[in-house]
Every structure is written in structure tokens, then in C-alpha cells.
Design a protein around this nucleic acid. Structure first.
Length: 275
DNA sequence: AACTAGGACAACCGCCAAGTT
DNA sequence: TAACTTGGCGGTTGTCCTAGT
């Protein structure tokens, strides 16, 4: 069958954007808002592919974008998040207000990857969770784990840069999950699988990163992702096997795999780092 | 001053999943 | 339910800039 191309490439400008094109695009989006990228070029009078417009806007023209001068703190954050999430640049970017996935990806590829690999040479190997690109607009919380009445917010993508809203600490968010055993059987009021936005702005990131969460690869825990690792069960490395568990669990419940299921298995990590 | 190598980063590409018809 | 559209993602490429020779 095949897909139709996102646009006819004939007669379209390619390569670097001119100041005029930037202005046209910016003015158009100011008036009409983002979205409908395919039709945007025609409506705005741009000889560009819709995708190209979207990229230009998201990575360069948006008013809330910070450019350059990645601070040491941001750098450390990127390293930690990359260790945790792998090449999921949009997720990482979502944790760095004003930064774009493209910028972080470039920064990683040109600066950090070498440095990190150098750092890791000589130490034991670590395992990065690698997944295919997947959208993660929502996170699934297994009702067995989630026992509190929360108001799910309208869905939005996890790459909602810059909108981090109010923050909850990691403990606040995860406590209900971690204390599930106390509330077993109290899930009747939850009508169905519960989803809510995975806006990591809801986490107090420092809680996460100041913990040893970033060193999850070195942690051992039980295979069942129980919050109390059993000595009877063999320790498991945070690696492929873990990933299989995650994806299997997530696919059972929801198509929004990965991050969602990751959350379910966070408590064992967090217990090691968050008091 | 001219040339080259490597770094930085903007932009493009193809794939995929969600949403819509 | 299938076909199709739309938008998002990560990987890759192309081009410009700069430091070194």
C-alpha cells in the first residue's frame, strides 16, 4: 500500500530557512496556532513541507526556547536522564525547560556521548534502556497499584516542552503506588485502567535525580518488581530482561508502553534512593 | 593566507502509532 | 474494521564555522 509522502517535494524550498520564511511562519502561528502542519505551508504561503515547518517551529522559532549555553547542571541532568531513558530525546528534553530534543540529541552526540563512554571505560558496563521511538502521551497506572482518586488531566504529548505546571514530589506521586499493599481491594472505585499525563513536571526532578535512581543499572531487585525484593529470587540486572518485563506488562494493559510501565517498577529503585 | 579536519547544529528522512473517516 | 491522515520520534546527513597546521 505505502504511504503518500507528507507533501509533494516539487517546487519546495529546502535547506536553511531565511529570515523571511521564519517571519511568515511565526506570524502565521501567532494568529492561527500550531497544528495542521500539512496545510500550514499552503495557507501561510510558504514553499516548505509541513514537516519542515513543524521542525522549524519546534526547534527554533518557539518563543520559549533557550538556545546554547547548556549549563553544567543541565549537562549532568542530560547524562543522568540518558542513563535512565536511553535515546529518548523528547522525554529528556521535556525535563529541560526550553530545550529541544534536537538540541539535546546534537549536544549528546557531539559532546556527551564521548565523555560518558570515556567515563565508563574502566568501570563496569551499564545498561541503557533502549526502546523504539514511541509516543507516550499518557501513562498507565495499574489500578492494582493506583488507589487514589486523581483527576486525569487532558491528554497531551510528553514533549510538551516548557509547560511543567505544578510539581509534585516523586514521593507524592509514587506513594500511592508504593503503598498498594495497604490498599489492596480498594480499587473498586476505579472504573478502568487509569491513565494520566506523563508530564514529568509533576515530579520534583531533583527528588529523582538526587537519588541514586540514575544508577539503577547497578541495583539488584526482585524479578517480580515487588517493592520488597525477595531474597529467594535471583537478582536481576536492569537490562534487557527488565525491559522485557516492562514491555510485556505494559502491552498487557495499554498500548502506551515503556514509560508507563517504567513507573510501575520505579518503587524498587526509589527505595534505594528516596527516603 | 590557504588548506584541512573536526565540531556544531539545522534540517531532512523514514518509520511508527494514534486519530479520523 | 480497514484505509488513510497526521503528527511525533530518533537517526542521519549536509553545511557552516573554527582551530590547527
Amino acid at each position: 500500500m505505502g504511504r503518500s509522502p507528507c507533501c509533494s517535494k516539487e517546487g519546495l524550498n529546502r535547506g536553511a530557512w531565511t529570515a523571511l520564511e521564519d517571519k511568515i511562519l511565526t506570524d502565521y502561528i501567532k494568529v492561527h496556532g500550531e497544528g495542521r502542519w500539512r496545510n500550514l505551508p499552503k495557507r501561510a504561503g510558504l514553499k516548505r513541507c509541513g514537516k519542515s515547518c513543524r521542525l522549524r517551529w519546534l526547534n527554533y522559532l518557539r518563543p520559549d526556547i533557550k538556545r546554547g549555553n547548556i549549563s553544567a547542571d543541565e549537562e549532568e541532568l542530560i547524562i543522568k536522564l540518558h542513563k535512565l531513558l536511553g535515546n529518548r530525546w523528547s522525554l529528556i528534553a521535556g525535563r529541560l525547560p526550553g530545550r529541544t530534543d534536537n538540541e539535546i540529541k546534537n549536544y549528546w552526540n557531539t559532546n556527551l556521548s564521548k565523555r560518558v563512554s570515556d567515563r565508563q571505560n574502566g568501570s563496569s558496563s551499564t545498561h541503557v534502556v533502549r526502546t523504539r521511538a514511541t509516543r507516550c502521551s499518557k501513562v498507565f497506572i495499574n489500578p492494582h497499584h493506583h488507589t487514589q482518586n486523581r483527576d486525569p488531566k487532558p491528554s497531551s504529548t510528553c514533549s510538551n516542552h516548557g509547560d511543567h505546571g505544578e510539581s509534585k514530589t516523586m514521593n507524592e506521586l509514587l506513594l500511592p503506588i508504593m503503598s498498594e499493599s495497604e490498599n489492596e481491594g480498594t480499587t473498586d472505585h476505579i472504573s478502568s485502567d487509569f491513565t494520566f499525563d506523563f508530564n514529568m513536571g509533576e515530579f520534583c526532578l531533583s527528588d529523582l535525580l538526587n537519588s541514586d535512581f540514575c544508577d539503577v543499572s547497578e541495583l539488584n531487585y526482585s524479578k517480580g518488581f515487588d517493592s520488597s525484593p525477595s531474597p529467594d529470587q535471583p537478582p536481576l540486572d536492569f537490562s534487557d530482561e527488565m525491559l522485557k518485563e516492562w514491555t510485556a506488562a505494559a502491552s498487557t494493559h495499554c498500548s502506551h508502553q515503556s514509560v508507563a510501565s517504567n513507573l510501575q517498577s520505579l518503587p524498587p529503585f526509589l527505595e534505594n534512593g528516596i527516603e
